[in-house]
Structures are given as C-alpha cells and as structure tokens.
Write a protein that binds this DNA or RNA. Structure first.
Lengths: 205, 205
DNA sequence: ACAGAAATTGACGGGACGTCATTTTTGTGG
DNA sequence: CCACAAAAATGACGTCCCGTCAATTTCTGT
C-alpha cells in the first residue's frame, strides 16, 4: 500500500529536473541584474544555486542560452496579453493603444523589479529567440487581419510590424527615463503617430 | 640640417601611437565580423596585429571599449551626412526622406562589407557611445528646429526622435532581409508613416 | 651623445571555460 | 526487498583568457 494516495504522474526524476532548471534561471536573473550580462559568468550563476559546475551544462550550453531562456519567458508571458488586447479591441486604434499600454506596463514592471538603472540593466545580447519571433508574428498577424478587415489600407505589414516594434522598443526606455514614467502618455504618442503621423501625435501641453 | 625638408609637426611617438590604435581597430573589425562579438577575445584581436598582449591595454581597457570606438567611428561618419541632409532639405518631408535614405544606405554599406549574414553580424552590445548620443541629438535638434519653424506641430521632440530612430533601427534589418533591398522603398515607407501615419505610408503594389 | 620619459613586451597569478571519468540517485524487474 | 542499469550530478582537470607589472626597448630634448 503505502502510497496509493495521490496520483503522482511525475517521478522524482522529472521533478528535480524542472527544479534545477528553474533554480538556474532564478539565479541567472539575479546575477544578470547584479553584475550585468556582460560580466556575469556561468560560474557566478551556478554559485547562486546548490548545483555543481558540471551540472549547469546538463541544462544549458552557455550563458547566452540561459539569457535566451529568460527572454523567452518574458515573451511567453507577454504574448497572451497581446492576444487579449487584440480580441477585446473595439477598433484598430483601440488595439494599438492597448498593445502599447500593455508593452509599456510590461517594460515598467520588468524594470522595476530588476533594479533602478534604466539602460545598464538591459542585457546586451541577441534576443531573436523563438518566442520573440512569435511576438513579432503576433503583431504582424494583427496588422494583416486589420488590413484584410478593411481597417487599414493595403500597406506593407512586415514593415509596419517592424516599425511598431521599433517605436515600442525605443519609446519604452525613453519613457522610463522620465519621472514619473507616464505609460498612457507614451502609448498615446505611439498610437497617434502610427495612425495619423505627426498630426495624430498628441500635442505637448 | 638633415631634415629641414618636410614640416613634421608629428613625432614618431605620435605616429606609431595612431598606427597602433588603428591596427587594433582594423583587426577588431575583422575579428568581430569573423567570430562575432560575443566569442571574440582580446587575444584574438591582438593576434591580428604585430603587438604584444600588454600593449592592447595601453589603448583600450576592454573588448567593449574597442567596440564602442568602432561604433563611434560609424556614428562619426554618419553625422555629417545627416547634417548635410538637414541643410540641403527643401522641406521637412524632404529632410526626413533623405535622412532615412542616408541611414539605410549606410546600413546596407556597412552590412555589405561585413559579410552576408544580416542579423548574426550585428554585435550584441550597448551602443550608447558618445557619438551615438550625438546622432540622437542631431536628429532631435532637427525636429526641434522644424517645430520652431512651424513645419511641425508642437509635439514631444524627445519621443519623436526616439520613434524615428526606432523605426530606422528596425526597418534597416527588415529591408536587408529582402532581396534585393530597396532603400528608396523603405525610406518612403518610414517617411510616409511619420508624416501622415498609416494613410501616409505607401500602399503595397 | 646621453639621460630620462614613454611605450612595448611577455611572463605570471587568478579565474573561467567546457569535458569527462567517477560517484550518487532513481526507476524497474525479479 | 534487492540488485542492476540508466540517468543525472559531481568536481577535478587541461586549456585558454584576463589584466598587471617589472624589465626592456624606443624615442625625445638637450
């Protein structure tokens, strides 16, 4: 008898495996925040866990791969938010604005818990991880839908998606540099600019 | 007498100094292109010169500093182009378009001589070097001038400058990914988007 | 020509890297 | 309950890179 009680579909093997992976990711997040991506080392990360150096390489091939896993995490959390914004939007303008708001909120949140310095914290590494691509696809899909729906003229969806992402990426830090950061204001600026260009961007004061 | 001939305001000391610095930069550019920024090492760089390892540190404190010097170079070459675009422009639209064209040309050029892979080559490192800031300032100044001149409504010049830069940064690689890259088309897209938003962006086909 | 300043050199101690033979842990069949 | 094989963790090891620094070479002014 002994353990008829709980259904344990998951053996100890699997359990420690996810636990270790998680431990590495948690430690990595902290180490990257403290030392910055560049100067952080694989050893720094494993020292932040109970594991031995060799064990690290059972889970990741390099520091960069750990970072990508973290970036993936972020993108994975952000994507459903983006999708909900699309589904709930009453108009294209509405979608755009909520998407920007969601992103800027996300950025502000990530930044707040990572420590103060706005720029220095952002790891300087390639971020074209699969999940990031998925976010791009999500945005692009929204744009193509809007075009097909007649909400947008027939413009280059690829370029437009990149432009939106570029605006978001640059406006995010610019917003954070102001105190206090005004998410709605930044989102209004981006939305207005994309919809109507300079005439659509909110006047200052 | 001996050397009354040429006026040599520059001693041998100074000369080898600039030569060494240049040698390091040239080697670094090649090494970064070949190995990628991440995996390149200071040793790889000096091996590409006639210098000893210790000498490197007389010129730069780290690999990152070398990269920043290279980025500075790029920005330093780009800035006058940008300024000329501003001075020669007949209208704000004209300025915007030529600025984008200049940037996309620059990107295409840098990319062509660095080897083919579009994304992998771009070093993943902070690029907020002083000269980069200067480019941002240059853009922002243009925008503020245009606002003061009445060519633009009173909008947030800081945000707008960041938005332009974000668009340029994302559209550049997106353009390069197409074959053949169409600089004028990308510039037209960016200009139209900024000026009039979606309605201003060129229709596709 | 010479002395002192400036720059170069490469060896060195400290560490990080990624691997791998060994040990420990876990799952399974008798 | 045990034994045995597969899986995973361990940490020592050889290799390489880092940044420094005392010794040496190269330059400059007098």
């Amino acid at each position: 008898m002994s353990e008829t009680a709980s259904i344990e579909p998951i053996g100890k093997r699997e359990k420690t495996k996810v636990a270790n992976r998680q431990a590495i990711l948690v430690a990595a997040r902290r180490v990257f925040a403290e030392l910055g991506y560049e100067s952080a080392t694989v050893r720094d990360i494993i020292r932040g866990t109970e594991l031995a150096s060799g064990t690290f390489y059972n889970y990741f091939r390099s520091k960069e791969e750990v970072f990508e896993a973290l970036a993936d995490d972020g993108a994975r959390r952000f994507r459903p938010i983006l999708r909900m914004a699309r589904e709930h939007a009453k108009s294209f303008e509405d979608y755009l604005r909520s998407a920007f708001i969601a992103y800027f909120r996300f950025v502000a949140e990530e930044n707040r818990e990572a420590g103060l310095p706005v720029d220095e914290r952002r790891p300087h590494v390639r971020t074209d991880t699969p999940e990031m691509m998925a976010v791009y696809q999500e945005v692009r899909q929204s744009l193509e839908d809007a075009i097909a729906h007649g909400d947008l003229p027939h413009i280059d969806a690829d370029y437009l998606a990149h432009a939106c992402i570029g605006i978001a990426q640059e406006l995010g830090p610019a917003m954070l540099r102001r105190s206090p950061p005004d998410i709605d204001n930044a989102a209004a600026f981006a939305t207005g600019l994309i919809l109507k260009g300079l005439e659509g961007a909110p006047r200052k004061n």
